[in-house]
């Protein structure tokens, strides 16, 4: 087939595309994956008594931390799914949010009585927290991968890492509905580690999964 014939053929396959397709597809993926993860949290892990928890500042501290990371992660994914677009300030914002949380956790540990520090840091559930967040991130990551492949990522490992990061952060937000831990030091460590693990899984698998 001559290239001119191919172009002629492609010109017959033109239909109008509404603007905003990229954001809509990624948002739909986050919602779809988020619903699956929410169902697992609600049906398998069970939510803590939410009316009481919502009165507490630690509940919102967790939600704001992971929520901000979800938003910045989604913005980075959006940029990376479009060829040639610049990353902008979202990665810096994500780093600053994590640093602020680490500072908050460190401050809490330092100001606590030495005997209470280990309990604050490990809580009751430190062993399962990060692995659960990683597992809960997988449905969201899978939905994001499907959506991103239909777009045009050109830096696959980086895009995979960003998708894993966004999936991990949203999973951590939903996990907060279940997890009764209250300490900033706990969240700064084990939540962050779970999100980091999801980021690593994305970076490694994105190179293969996101090829188009």
């Amino acid at each position: 087939m001559r290239t001119a014939d191919l172009i002629e053929l492609l010109a017959r396959d033109v239909s109008a595309t509404p603007p905003g397709v990229v954001s809509r597809r990624l948002l739909a993926a986050l919602v779809a994956g988020g619903l699956v993860t929410f169902a697992i949290v609600a049906l398998v892990l069970h939510c803590q008594p939410l009316a009481a928890a919502a009165q507490q500042s630690w509940f919102w501290m967790k939600a704001v931390y992971t929520g901000l990371l979800t938003v910045t992660g989604a913005l980075i994914v959006r940029r990376l799914s479009v060829p040639g677009s610049r990353l902008g300030t979202a990665p810096l914002a994500a780093v600053l949010v994590v640093l602020a949380m680490l500072a908050l956790g460190a401050g809490q540990i330092l100001s606590a009585a030495p005997a209470a520090r280990l309990t604050l840091w490990l809580g009751q559930t430190w062993k399962i927290c990060s692995p659960l967040i990683l597992l809960l991130a997988l449905p969201i990551y899978a939905c994001l991968v499907v959506a991103i492949r239909r777009l045009a990522p050109t830096r696959l490992a980086r895009t995979g890492a960003a998708a894993g990061f966004a999936a991990g952060a949203l999973a951590a937000t939903l996990y907060g509905l279940h997890c009764p831990e209250q300490a900033a030091a706990f969240v700064a460590t084990w939540y962050t580690l779970g999100i980091a693990a999801a980021t690593a899984v994305g970076a490694i698998s994105g190179r293969w999964l996101l090829r188009w």
């Binding site: 290239t3 191919l6 492609l10 397709v21 479009v82 060829p83 040639g84 677009s85 777009l151």
Partner: peptide, 28 residues
């Protein structure tokens, strides 16, 4: 060339109309 034109065609809805076109085409 043909493979890339086909990709430009099928992936064109990833182009953001508010951004410059040439970096998009180059990255692809």
């Amino acid at each position: 060339v043909q493979e890339t034109l086909l990709a430009v065609h099928l992936k064109r809805d990833s182009y953001d109309r508010s951004l410059p076109f040439t970096p998009w085409a180059y990255a692809l």
